[in-house]
Design a protein around this nucleic acid. Structure first.
Lengths: 253, 253
DNA sequence: ACCCTTGTTTGATCTGGATCAAGTGATCCT
DNA sequence: AGGATCACTTGATCCAGATCAAACAAGGGT
């Protein structure tokens, strides 16, 4: 999702309190003294490159991870090499929350482009949350947000048409980039059509065809990974449910 | 999901420490002193009846809820009266976790049969978790578990065939009843075919047809809401992915 | 006991997207 | 630079499951 592919080695050493993401990330709303305490336990590793794994399914759970720059996909690999893409993660987003319960990662995380990742050892974070109420609250919020988001995805996969799914996907990326100070209408996708389709429960060919059609209809311009949103309004209408999704009977009881 | 429809008015007054669910529920693993402190903040209301709402989407978030007896569905209502069923909840299961972030309920919860519900005011719970580390850990675990579970559902809705979805559903109910000391092979469903289909992203007719076919194949016996699982092994094989789901290409990068 | 409403089943038909098949354009490697 | 591989696009066909239609069964209320 790089607006620019250059990443500064400088920047990855910078602490939370100087990080531009602080307002989106774990430190959100903390007092500066508390941010420093959080800072102390965060490890910043050298940048990872396209295809590198942050963790894989089955690994012992030790830490949560935050994307600092770049982008990451999480996916559930199955025996036969097939997989389900579970999410795409942009800077400031927390990864690994699903591993706490089983003490084992239940999905894998792979870097989609050169990325910097912050590592947060969970046991130490847990200790810290017990003594910083606002950090504890932030953790509950982040966990809850993840649940609410997956709930939205369930609705998407259970009830929406292919067009709606793509529209939701594009608007989601667009909004998230915007929050990070990037253009909401002109960006590069760091994931392949295949990965998009997998994520949305669609075949690659369907994704490709719909992108083409959206372009013909003047909703967007597509050139390879480069996307320009031309008509946000129409995309939003599509999502709203103008083209009435799939089966929507009235309910009972 | 009632093995028996009779519920004892006596039992709903009983505190956590005498509750048979304690080992599945929030108090899991707590010391008895801590259970008592938790007990003090839990409200137990009179039983609700089929169709009653525990909360509805948009309500201010104040409490989490636990099913004590009976069963509950959560669903996201949409403007036009259509809805997406998000989950079915059995005794010991916590509801409302997705509301923490927005401070507002993002789905509604409706009782499927006469049920007793425990209410846990969240602000007080949050205070308590800050001073009882094992309770805090338990909360993280429960939130994480919810995420991991929804992740499984994403895979189900994104990649699995109708047969697999039904098999997963039946085995899930079966296992959860078993954990609660009930029969895993002989039970009553408290939800309608319509709700099952909605939950699994299938039309009612498809659910009905597959139940009929499963019966013809000797996997189960179906009589209205009454289910008898005859061949767990085969259902498990179905889930494993014998009938190879949907499109499962190899992946890239 | 009977009517009405609602849930369920079964059959016939339709269709959105998956699958199959090719061709084209990028990117990478030596 | 040349060749191989991989990602994407486009067209043709197929099919699992949705939708439409109808009959039936069960429970609930009066």
């Amino acid at each position: 999702m790089s607006q620019r592919k250059v990443i500064s080695l400088e920047s990855i050493r910078v602490a939370c309190r100087h990080c531009t993401l602080a307002s989106l990330c774990l430190p959100m709303g903390l007092e500066s003294g508390d941010v420093e305490r959080l800072d102390e336990l965060i490890k910043r590793t050298r940048p990872l490159h396209r295809g590198d794994l942050i963790f894989r399914k089955g690994d012992r759970f030790k830490s949560l991870y935050v994307v600092k720059t770049g982008s990451v996909k999480t996916f559930a690999p199955s025996k036969e090499g097939a997989e389900q893409v579970l999410g795409f993660h942009l800077p400031g987003e927390l990864i690994g929350l699903d591993a706490i319960e089983r003490d084992t990662h239940v999905c894998s995380a792979k870097v989609l482009e050169t990325s910097a990742i912050c590592e947060i050892p969970f046991p130490r974070l847990e200790e810290l949350t017990a003594i910083i109420p606002s950090l504890q609250h932030q953790m509950y919020r982040l966990l809850s947000k993840e649940i609410a988001h997956e709930t939205d995805m369930l609705l998407l996969l259970g009830k929406k048409s292919a067009d709606e799914r793509l529209a939701v996907f594009l608007l989601s990326i667009s909004k998230r980039l915007h929050k990070r100070g990037l253009s909401s209408t002109d960006f590069y996708l760091s994931m392949s059509r295949h990965e998009i389709g997998n994520y949305l429960g669609l075949a690659v060919e369907t994704v490709s065809r719909i992108f083409t059609r959206f372009q013909e209809e003047g909703l967007m311009r597509v050139d390879r990974k480069h996307i320009e949103i031309l008509d946000v309004r129409s995309l939003e209408l599509l999502v709203g449910g103008a083209g009435q999704s799939r089966r929507q009977h009235q309910q009972h009881t």
